[in-house]
């Protein structure tokens, strides 16, 4: 089931038989044909009939594990992972700062890798594991990076912070926290307009130097 909707992924597996998306395409073609009949077309449009029918088929089932919790959701293919999290699943810890992949506020981990969730369609993470800022702490016990951000005051307004922290954890895991300069380079996709940069870098250096499991 999971593999069926992978064609949108970079390593997509292509489609398999019985794909509901194909069915949808067929049906919508049919609908279009019907709609071409003038009187019917006008009537259907006026009653929103075509849209109501289409709306059902426009949604695709997606299975995602978010912070260890399995979610089966029906989403339109145009819904980004970011908007799915914020607007539909009420996981608002992940932030929208630009919606264009330019600021890093929306950074989450997909199968352990940092990605901009605003540039990721929800259907692309079908079958994947997503970790958001809400899933970083173990219950009441904060992740070392969260502790270090508090200690070094790695934020002011806190809006870029979830993205910075998710990026920072990945930065250490990737082995890109070898020096102050390297950290700055590999954290440059995360803008902080409050200007907490030096504090963020210090927090990351401390976590890296502490050698804890991140």
């Amino acid at each position: 089931m999971d593999e069926q909707y992978n064609e949108g992924l970079p390593d997509g597996q292509g489609q398999s038989a019985g794909n509901p998306r194909r069915d949808f395409l067929k049906k919508s073609t049919l609908l279009t044909a019907v709609a071409l009949t003038p009187g019917v077309a006008v009537k259907a449009a006026e009653n929103h009939v075509d849209e109501h029918v289409a709306a059902v088929f426009e949604k695709l089932p997606v299975d995602i594990e978010i912070n260890g919790v399995k979610h089966n959701v029906l989403v339109e293919p145009r819904v980004t992972l970011l908007d799915l999290l914020r607007e539909q699943l009420n996981l608002t810890g992940t932030k929208k700062g630009c919606d264009y992949g330019q600021c890093g506020a929306c950074t989450v981990h997909v199968d352990g890798h940092r990605v901009n969730s605003c540039l990721t369609l929800a259907v692309m993470v079908d079958g994947k594991k997503v970790t958001t800022i809400e899933g970083l702490a173990k219950g009441d016990e904060l992740h070392p990076m969260q502790e270090a951000f508090i200690k070094h005051d790695g934020f002011q307004c806190g809006y870029c912070t979830p993205g910075q922290i998710m990026s920072a954890v990945a930065c250490v895991r990737e082995g890109h926290a070898g020096s102050e300069m390297e950290i700055r380079e590999y954290m440059s996709g995360n803008i902080c307009r409050c200007g907490a940069y030096p504090n963020i870098v210090n927090a990351i250096m401390e976590v890296k130097a502490g050698g804890q499991q991140v």
């Binding site: 914020r86 608002t92 800022i133 969260q146 934020f155």
Partner: peptide, 20 residues
Amino acid sequence: NRVDGKLKVTGAAKYAAEFN
């Protein structure tokens, strides 16, 4: 430390658009 630090690092701080 910032009194609201924990809310900010855990994503629990709610900004205007986050009241669904």
